[in-house]
Nucleic acid binder design. Sequence first.
RNA 1: CGGGGAGUGGCGCAGUCUGGUAGCGCAUCUGUUUUGGGAACAGAGGGUCGCAGGUUCGAAUCCUGUCUCCCCGACCA
Length: 436
Amino acid sequence: MRLSRYFLPTLKETPSEAQIASHRLMLRAGMIRQGAAGIYSWLPLGLRVLKKIEAIVREEQDRAGAQELLMPTIQSAELWVESGRYEDYGKEMLRIEDRHGREMLYGPTNEELITDIFRKEVRSYRDLPKMLYHIQWKFRDEIRPRFGVMRGREFLMKDAYSFDLTPEGAVRSYNAMFVAYLRTFARLGLKAIPMRADTGPIGGDLSHEFIILAETGESQVFFHKDFEKKDALSLNPDFDADLQPIVDDWTSIYAATEEMHDAATCGVAEGDLVTGRGIEVGHIFYFGDKYSKPMGATVQGPDGELVNVEMGSYGIGVSRLIGAIIEAFHDDNGIIWPESVAPFKVGLINLRSGDAACDGACEQLYKDLGAAGVEVLYDDRDERAGAKFANMDLIGLPWQVTVGPRGLEKGMVELKNRATGEKTEVALAEIVAKLS
RNA sequence: CGGGGAGUGGCGCAGUCUGGUAGCGCAUCUGUUUUGGGAACAGAGGGUCGCAGGUUCGAAUCCUGUCUCCCCGACCA
């Protein structure tokens, strides 16, 4: 992409409403613009990151055996009356009336709808287990939206739902999602800590929150320092095998959110206990027949009896993750994207647009990198060097290739690592190979 | 929902107390000179001051109502 043609409205100054780093940087880097309180438009750069995260989430869901479908944003109130949550959910649910006076709502979650789909189609235990998910916009009318996309009212969420015949089977599904989440967050460059959590209005017996550490996090968290050594990226689980050992390995180390933590009973020595603030990026629940029972989602078991299916639900805040990643990876100059979610891998800076040698070298590099499958944002604008450097640091692409007259005389370009700040001289002829 | 703050060119803000018909920086456009960490000079365009009503010869400024946004707290898959 050529920056001269790209819709990338970056800001030198911080809009006054943005308080925390991720919100400020997302506005300044031209990723989002606010439409109303807690509601945002995603501009091209922001959307690219959102899509990258979505793709990783999708890959790991598929790998864990879940199947993607897509449910609508607008739902009928009837199902929610049936489950008993139409009244319970309160004002956080955006209620809508259509032209015929039917009660509708903008879905805050999808347990009811997926249960309805399931009960209409599945009759036999032979069809179980089933794990279905979608990645769809949700709306929750938060009392006080804040922190940009971290606590928006409209947000993109991956929500998965499992259906099993028995509690044991449900735990297997739960474990599969648990491990899939470990991998997902690790691939996003994040250290996520699973913590036993309160099940809240979803209800149920078993629940973990996945929390990444950041100073601006909304919840206080406590965990054993051994978590700092855990590495989920190296997990290569066989999802057909028993995953309980992996889950046990990760849950045997103490970690809890504020509501669940009790210093007296946690059993962690004071010197080993780490306290911090965290951002919840995922939450998984096993809740048995909480929805299948009132909604009559049954299958016929081996003995011919009708059984309410055992269910679980599993959420990842896809749009929130962008904010969380920026909270974890930024400095005074801007964002520092992990390579897996960077909107482009390389920023190509032409220090002297209009200079024949610089233009020629850049055009060739741009073409060659593109041919090598490397995503490049080429700053071909007629701007001064400082402006280009500052802008590139702000949007945080992992690699910057600087082409200027001085280096070109020697056949060299400069390669900068955004994360470390390290700059190296690389021969023009070698740069494509180095970045591919 | 309780408490607090703010709405003035695209962005950041001053002007409001002490009414007299809108200003600064950045950004934008044109030209010239520049060019390795957010250039300089010259010129130009762009707002009727959130909205509605009122007071007044005259309202960004005073009064009433209303909408929106932000912050703290409570709330929160």
